[in-house]
Design a protein around this nucleic acid. Structure first.
Lengths: 191, 191
DNA sequence: CGCATAAGTCAGTCATACTGCCATAACACG
DNA sequence: CGTGTTATGGCAGTATGACTGACTTATGCG
């Protein structure tokens, strides 16, 4: 892993000579100003960088990378996932997936089973070893998520999810909507 | 770029045999249940994947990648940024940065100028060409952000930022707090 | 003057993506 | 039953973005 300095670099300059371009669209919708959208980019960058740092360390010890984490995560989330479905979720090519999935299967983290209706399919599940690793990776991210969620509070979490949902394509929305439906919770993101 | 199918894969299984582990921590804090935190991971994955898709296409045409986008973004955000500061933000090594920054400077997207107080420093700024590209990249992400923000509404955006802030390390928080302070807005995330 | 700092550079490695092409097994339909 | 399609797996080659370690140059500072 990489130990980038925790150094607090000097406060931002804010001389951006671009500030006035699409600056104030709706007056009432201040959160649509350029500066707010730029801030969203900044924050997403920092959040993803810092959220992935801890899992990356664990993965590096085992000779794995983020791609392996993504595989483990999605197989954990959807046991019995087909290879083709995993490809559609990850948005990578079959060959790229093979190089990640191969070692995970070879080292006994993920198991394959032929589909019952369609025996061409290889349904993916986590072995006990795979579950152990995936839970370990989850739990270090969990710590950070719990702190952030608890500090922010329920309504903020709700807003967080509403915005994230809006950033996704239909595929992702269908997935999360399906989850919420199954969980029979109060619908929070009105389609 | 990659054209993953918009295919809506079948609804999730939800047989996860792990559901009961840390399932219900606080009763009143339902958003801290395992399923909620897993959902956060899912949604962040989809949101980042889909938010980056459009810029990736533009970058690919020019022979660049996401790393170049990150450079352009941060130089746009903080004109006159020092190389060392950029390294601290990106969290990569000098050598990795060189390979990204080199072509951007060589092809005239980013310019360097010696620091006035300290002439060892190379202060980074966007050239006009660089500004044009960066704004093009920004604007395609902007579309998606605007839709998400507008659909979600102001309070949701506020919650979105609160949670993201909680996911960051101190470095990022100092940065965004500095921005908010400079913008003299009502403080929303109590430190 | 001597050490520290900011930045650049060289050489080698690794992980993760890509493309194109081919193989195998199983399903599906006329 | 045969042909075409689908699901998966594999090989060869390439590019990007990350890494480590060691070295150089220019500058700042005590």
């Amino acid at each position: 892993m990489q130990d980038y300095p925790t150094q607090t670099f000097p406060a931002p300059k804010r001389e951006t000579p671009l500030g006035g371009a699409h600056a104030a669209p709706g007056a009432g919708l201040l959160f649509l100003r350029e500066e707010e959208l730029r801030l969203a980019q900044d924050m997403l960058f920092f959040a993803m960088r810092d959220l992935n740092a801890a899992p990356d360390e664990i993965l590096a010890e085992l000779g794995f990378g983020r791609a392996h984490h993504r595989c483990l995560h999605w197989v954990a989330r959807r046991p019995g996932l087909k290879v083709g479905e995993l490809l559609a979720i990850l948005g990578i090519t079959k060959q790229s997936l093979t190089r990640v999935l191969g070692p995970l299967i070879g080292e006994g983290y993920i198991a394959q089973a032929p589909g019952q209706q369609d025996r061409r399919q290889r349904l993916l599940t986590l072995t006990e070893k795979g579950q152990a690793l995936e839970r370990r990776l989850y739990s270090v991210q969990r710590e950070r998520l719990v702190v952030a969620y608890r500090e922010a509070g329920g309504p903020a979490v709700d807003g967080f999810k509403r915005v994230l949902r809006g950033l996704m394509n239909k595929q992702g929305r269908d997935y999360v909507d399906g989850l919420e439906h199954r969980a029979q919770k109060a619908p929070r993101a009105g389609a």
